[in-house]
Design a protein around this nucleic acid. Structure first.
Lengths: 116, 116
DNA sequence: TTATTATATAATATTTTAGTTATATAACAA
DNA sequence: TTGTTATATAACTAAAATATTATATAATAA
């Protein structure tokens, strides 16, 4: 799951998320991406490399430009992993639900030693 | 969106994802969490703090123990953000679909200057 | 050819992260 | 009270990430 590391890490940076949000509107060049940020062009190039390595964007060559776009299956792995968590959460919720139902009202004091 | 930073960053570490996967099975203590890892207890405590700050887990006090569990709405913000991306991706896909349909077969050479 | 444009890469400084050991604290057991 | 258990915190180190400036490269324009 080495790649989940990269993908989540790539998503953890606000500049990179902003870049992705911009790319959600469609393909653009590096310069165009860099413009709204108070950051040098090399910094943006590095961010793009991180996004590319994470599998979040694709780049093609067009003359001297390198237009970027979202990778079609960008969030697939991440989605799968989060789905696991969500499933666990709803399972836990159901379990709690069952426990509460089984206990009925006002039968809360169980054998646990501590306070609650 | 400061918190998205924290949540994604927390998810970027394999140890922390393993901890979450373990918690998906149910609440446990710090020691129990630490056991499968080749890592000291303080290291695990720090990971737990990161997860807590990211809103991914909750902790309660039970005597000398601090049982952890998944936060019920752990992935909510993250899910929302990723949903935005997915939506954009499918929109882009539909758009491409439309373009291809409009072009019909074998009418690919458009006005763009470069090779393709 | 030479200049310009769009982008990448290298060297470097700064900050952040992740781990370690040592130590503190609070609850429990004896 | 004293020792033990479960966990947290501090001090520190090492490694990784982020940004900067300076420079390289490759395509286009003149």
């Amino acid at each position: 799951m080495r790649n989940l590391d990269h993908t989540f890490a790539a998503l953890a940076d606000p500049t990179r998320r902003a870049i992705l949000a911009r790319l959600a509107l469609g393909e653009t060049t590096v310069m165009e991406l860099a413009q709204p940020f108070e950051m040098t062009q090399p910094a943006i190039s590095r961010h793009l490399k991180v996004l590319e390595d994470a599998g979040l964007i694709l780049r093609r060559v067009e003359g001297t430009k390198r237009p970027c776009r979202l990778a079609p299956d960008a969030t697939r792995e991440v989605d799968a992993w989060l789905a696991m968590l969500r499933k666990a959460l709803s399972a836990n919720y159901d379990r709690l639900d069952g426990v509460l139902a089984a206990m009925g009202p006002a039968k809360h004091a169980k054998k646990r030693k501590g306070r609650r």
